[in-house]
């Protein structure tokens, strides 16, 4: 309804860190001074099932934190692509974790950014950083959130756990950025 509004879905297996990714993107947007909401699917999730988080960015008031037709989707696994491709807004943008998704995006109106997120995370030393690589690719390809704000949000998200995790996830973020901008 609002022209400045961008509706983003992050989706993957439970355990791939989609909630954390949503949180980091939302906090980065807040650091950038934008209005933002984060809504996480709750309650009826199962281990191994799909989980998703939705982030709405806007320069005006945000009416609803729910996203019916995403403008952008970060999909970390095949079931998430199957679920969200059909409901994407016209001319939307999909960031695909090519390492775990063995098919092409079918809709011709969608812009596709492919990134070997899991393979890159593996090379960095921990496949659990797949989400941060994909997030970096999202930021590099869409420019919706500033790289500096994202790095700051990553630091805030992991600093209470360990300096090592801050370092790993920051490297993963930059690897994702580099993968789509080089």
């Amino acid at each position: 309804m609002n022209d400045s509004e961008t509706r983003i879905v992050i989706a993957g297996f439970g355990g791939q860190g989609v909630v954390l990714t949503g949180n980091v993107i939302a906090r980065a947007a807040m650091i950038d001074g934008r209005n933002v909401t984060l809504m996480v699917s709750y309650g009826a999730e199962m281990r191994g099932g799909t989980a998703n988080a939705t982030v709405v960015l806007s320069d005006g008031p945000i009416a609803s934190p729910y996203v019916e037709t995403p403008d952008v989707a970060i999909v970390l696994n095949r079931p998430s692509l199957d679920r969200f491709e059909p409901v994407m807004a016209p001319n939307g943008h999909v960031i695909v974790n090519r390492s775990l998704i063995d098919r092409d995006v079918e809709r011709e109106d969608l812009t596709v950014t492919s990134v070997e997120a899991t393979s890159i995370a593996h090379e960095l030393g921990n496949v659990r950083a797949t989400n941060m690589v994909a997030m970096g690719a999202f930021a590099g390809a869409t420019k919706l959130v500033g790289a500096e704000a994202l790095a700051e949000a990553v630091r805030l998200a992991f600093q209470e756990k360990s300096a090592k995790l801050v370092e790993l996830n920051t490297r993963a973020l930059h690897a994702g950025l580099d993968a789509v901008t080089s």
Binding site: N23, A26, M30, N35, V36, T37, L38, M39, V40, Y42, I62, P65, Y66
Partner: peptide, 9 residues
């Protein structure tokens, strides 16, 4: 439930 579950600044 939406207000309880959503996050915003």
């Amino acid at each position: 439930g939406i207000l309880g579950q959503m996050a915003e600044p």
